[in-house]
Simulated scan of single mutants.
Amino acid sequence: MSKQIKVGIVGGAGYTGGELIRLLVHHPYVAVSFIHSRSNAGKPVYAVHEDLVGETDWQFTGDLSQDVDVVFLCVGHGEAKKFLTENPFDARVKIIDLSQDFRLTSNATLGDRQFVYGLPELNREAIRQANNIANPGCFATAIQLGLLPLAKAGLLQNVYTTGITGSTGAGQSLSATSHFSWRANNIQAYKTLNHQHLNEIGESLLQLQPAGQIDVSFVPWRGDFTRGIFISSQLDLDLPATEVTSLYKNFFDGHPFTTVSDQPIFLKQAVNTNKCIIQLEKVGSKLVVHSIIDNLLKGASGQAVQNMNLLFGLDERAGLKLKANYF
């Protein structure tokens, strides 16, 4: 690709904004035009994201520019729609929103902008044709990737899911449950059976399995670590283990970031990468699907870059060939 993609970032001071900057600073086909932050305007990016010292001399700005090809919205839930309403971009500018504002079909339209749900393993061809992307949630990504092959085969009914996430999933603003003194040597269930990602999960599963009722019961956990998500979903399934494995490997064939492992998986395999790694365990008539991702990468900024690559006709792996930290 000869022409570089001109990128704007709104909300560049938070966790997802920082991860996005770390990915784009070395992306071979990207030129960052602006990184917007009202509270940090005029500061160098490395003053907030201190690990970027020596990587870039980019600065935060309080100004917006129309001279971009795509804008990433890394603002809080409920803020993206408000921001776009108050700061409309030209229709030719593509939008990738990392909040939950446009993920559901009922909320996917803003004026002339129609948002496509940006889970490449589900909607890759639609993403390639889209102008606006609603980036999936982190828990939603890990749970859906563990269940989509079964939905396509029409095999889902009652699913019981647990998942544990690191403290970065709560955002950068300090709260009682993200403080080190609370998190260390501690776990807690929260939003039991009522997590906000359940709605988008339900829509995606029904997209592949429109017939029959699917009930996903989800208990999320706060974990004693900074990043990563480990999901375990349990359901009744009479298919032999070999057939289930084939079902999964066939579904994800050609999707470069999702892998079905024949060995037990653990979180460090996915952290600091854009991977989702899945392990299947069959015990009698029960199937347990384990799936792991990095909540800030495949669960947020990495998937957003993957979507950008698809929007602009690039190899979806561009800028995302990352290495896990094994030790």
Rank of each mutant, 00 (worst) to 15 (best):
V305I: 11
G137R: 08
T192S: 01
A241H: 00
D215H: 03
Q129Y: 02
L155P: 09
G169E: 10
L150W: 10
L206C: 05
N107V: 03
P240N: 14
S291Y: 05
Q209K: 13
S106V: 10
A300V: 14
A31H: 14
V48Y: 00
R103D: 07
G319H: 03
F115Q: 13
Q4M: 10
V71G: 14
S173K: 15
V288G: 08
S106T: 11
F218C: 04
Q172P: 04
K286E: 05
Q188A: 15
V244Q: 05
G299L: 13
D67T: 03
F139I: 10
F72W: 12
E243M: 04
L310G: 01
Y248R: 12
I277C: 03
K94S: 06
R38W: 12
A47G: 09
L297C: 12
I143C: 00
G18H: 11
Q279H: 15
F60R: 05
I21T: 06
P240V: 00
Q306S: 05
V288R: 15
Y117G: 04
G76T: 01
L206K: 15
F257I: 09
Q306P: 00
L310V: 08
D63T: 07
A13L: 09
V159C: 03
A130F: 09
T162L: 01
G171E: 13
P88N: 12
D51H: 01
K282W: 10
L296E: 05
G14D: 09
S233P: 04
H26L: 06
A151V: 03
A134H: 06
G78P: 07
D315R: 07
I278E: 00
H255F: 09
A108Y: 03
D315L: 07
I265D: 08
T109D: 15
S204K: 07
L145A: 01
Q279A: 14
E79V: 03
M1F: 06
D315G: 09
N87S: 08
L310Y: 08
V7K: 12
R222Q: 01
V159G: 00
R22T: 08
G42N: 02
W221I: 15
V260K: 12
Q279V: 03
S301Y: 06
F139P: 01
F230E: 07
F251N: 11
V71F: 13
A304S: 14
V25N: 05
K323R: 03
G302D: 13
L24K: 07
N135M: 06
V71A: 02
F266D: 13
I35G: 06
A91M: 04
T161Q: 00
Q269F: 02
I187T: 15
L208N: 11
L52I: 00
T161L: 11
L147E: 11
G18E: 14
G12E: 12
E121G: 05
G212Y: 02
A134K: 15
V271G: 08
P264V: 05
G254L: 08
T141Q: 13
Q209H: 07
T245P: 01
N185I: 06
V70K: 07
M1R: 15
L247D: 06
L322P: 04
D224A: 14
P240R: 08
G171F: 10
A189I: 04
L198H: 08
R103C: 11
S173H: 14
E125C: 07
Q100P: 09
